[in-house]
Nucleic acid binder design. Structure first.
Lengths: 346, 346
DNA sequence: CAGCTTCAGTCAACCGGTTTCCTTGAACGG
DNA sequence: CCGTTCAAGGAAACCGGTTGACTGAAGCTG
């Protein structure tokens, strides 16, 4: 049997290349505190290649070097927004020689577990945290045993390690669009209170609504889910129940799922989209184009958020000073069929 | 400064408990090849507890023991189906003392990378593979350096390590429902060819359609995405374009995304759901209830699939013989608004 | 009471890398 | 011609666990 299931180890490479373990290690890690003949370097690389050598991550981590792994903590994997972010993070990490692991953190329930399993057990060098919120257990754990980390999407004020998008701009973009169509009463469905991107989006919405001189700009809060969208929509349209005209002619939501819930609720009330109510969602994902009517959304640079967060984290791991980062790509409107001039507008 | 960021190590626990490293290791790992006084055992546990001791996974792995980590490879994270499976896997793994890592495997592109990063570098003890398909590079890598693994959802024939659900039953359930409503011409949107659960579902559909004596049971294939659903729907309804009656009065899809695409396409053709065409999807997720009309689906035991796969894998890692497993929970119908009696039925 | 078990744990090697400090031979300067 | 320096690479300690072989003391046996 030509069984050869044994992993090649550093010594194997060393033997084949005719040098010592130390030399192989230094060459493969590209350390310049050692001078080697180009010819030797070459031999080492060839030997490693031919043996299919892969350093054992555990041994590496033990020896004081890094694990070359990061972990991304997201609050809800079922939210495809985070999947897009995760993809960006994964790709960029890979380009930088890191492995990005993905973990779901059900709003704190799993945070401590994840922290223990991943950080305390030395599996990762740093954390990408997309699930932060005030009072989150992770913040506590991080202050007790600090580990390189960045907060993305949901920021932590004053941490100096936030990687975010220009969410204020997304509110402006959505409102400008609706305003230009002639809407004067626009409702906003915000996320749960206390979560930064949600608060920022809401503030920007209110400010810009005032600046545009909208007649009404009510806000309702709800979870980022379909159900949250339904509840908030009913709240915004409450006056409708008695048969009078709806108090708003357009709704701008914080998440795609909320928009889906909102659309369902609006149609169930017997109102039409976009004739009676226009809807604008946040985040552009394939499903948006397949809803009926297709959903107009503000596309956020989610993938870039992932890459930028990894850039920042890796820089921090390698000792660079940290600072807040805002992804430069601007949100932009993806026009579909869920928005139109309000009836009765000139 | 009360800085104490140093992780507690095995020796620290040993010192506090007043015993040797070896004893601590054996006690904490619950090995019975060692006899200890209950009192000593107690001291060790208390010491570990008070120091917040967590074994370094790398050191552990190096010393020949396991890493206590698994990896789940899914073909598309954006498909919430896999998120549900992942949750089941994560929870069950945790109960068994393992950590379940999640990796996306874009149909083979990332498989080798993941395999290298996770298996070759010794980060995990085993693999849960949900992304298998014929000719997948992973199958090759696995035969070269075998690692404990199971295939879930998508099986690999003859591997003897498949963990699946009763997908045939889901076709039967869907068809029985439609047949009982009076539908005689039901179309099926299958997944891409060669992927097992898709093939099985299709076979079961055709067989049961024949058994029920349906007048027509056309099948169209498409990706598991919304776009795949649109294309397949247009194919099934092609005859409609000329204004004649649609060739089918109901459509049963392989995935939720396909169903969403199908609904969009049907409505865009000017047909009504469910009056003109009934739609039944597969997999029940929150969004299904928020579509307009709400989607009737066959709920598959996804979470259980995740737990069962972990059970099988961990058993395999611990040396038990493997065999194919079918999750016992049966698919069941979730009745919503997208199905009704066909018009013209008695 | 010597010898044999059993109990309760200890010793030390080992896993596969990384890193610090050395060694060695050759070239070079004076 | 001899001491220095430098390029090129090697030896060995160490990281934090695990594990099988081993040991001292107590208990049992005859």
């Amino acid at each position: 049997m030509p069984e050869q299931p044994v992993r090649a180890r550093l010594v194997d490479v060393a033997r084949v290349a005719g040098v010592s373990k130390a030399t192989v290690s230094k060459v493969l890690n590209g350390r310049q505190d050692l001078s080697v003949r180009p010819e030797t370097r070459q031999r080492v690389h060839e030997a490693a290649e031919s043996l299919g050598y892969r350093p054992h991550s555990g041994a590496r981590a033990l020896a004081g070097a890094s694990t070359h792994a990061l972990a991304l903590l997201v609050p809800a994997l079922a939210n495809p927004t985070y999947v897009t972010i995760a993809r960006g993070a994964y790709q960029r990490a890979r380009e930088l020689g890191y492995l990005s692991l993905l973990a779901e953190d059900f709003d704190g329930q799993e945070a401590d577990e994840s922290f223990n399993d991943l950080v305390q057990e030395g599996r990762v060098d740093g954390l990408l945290i997309a699930s932060a919120r005030p009072g989150h257990p992770l913040l506590d754990a991080l202050s007790r045993s600090p580990v390189p980390h960045v907060f993305l999407n949901r920021s932590v004020e004053g941490s100096g390690r936030n990687v975010t998008m220009d969410v204020a701009r997304s509110s402006v973009t959505a409102l400008d669009h609706l305003h230009s169509l002639g809407h004067q009463a626009v409702g906003h469905i915000a996320g749960p209170p206390g979560i930064t991107p949600s608060e920022d989006r809401k503030q920007a919405f209110l400010q810009h609504a005032e600046k545009l001189g909208l007649a009404a700009a009510p806000v309702a809060s709800g979870d980022f889910t379909e159900d949250g969208g339904v509840a908030a929509t009913l709240e915004l349209l409450r006056a409708t129940a008695d048969g009078s005209r709806p108090p708003v002619t357009a709704i701008y939501t914080s998440s795609l799922a909320q928009a889906i819930g909102a659309m369902g609720a609006i149609l169930k009330l017997g109102l039409r989209i976009p004739e009676d109510i226009s809807v604008v969602g946040n985040d552009d994902l394939p499903i948006a184009g397949h809803l009926v009517p297709p959903l107009t959304t503000v596309a956020m640079p989610l993938y870039e958020l992932g890459t930028a967060a990894v850039d920042a984290l890796v820089a921090a791991i390698e000792g660079a000073p940290m600072g807040d980062v805002v992804v430069p790509t601007e949100p932009h409107l993806v026009l579909r069929g869920s928005t139109a001039r309000p009836e009765g507008a000139s």
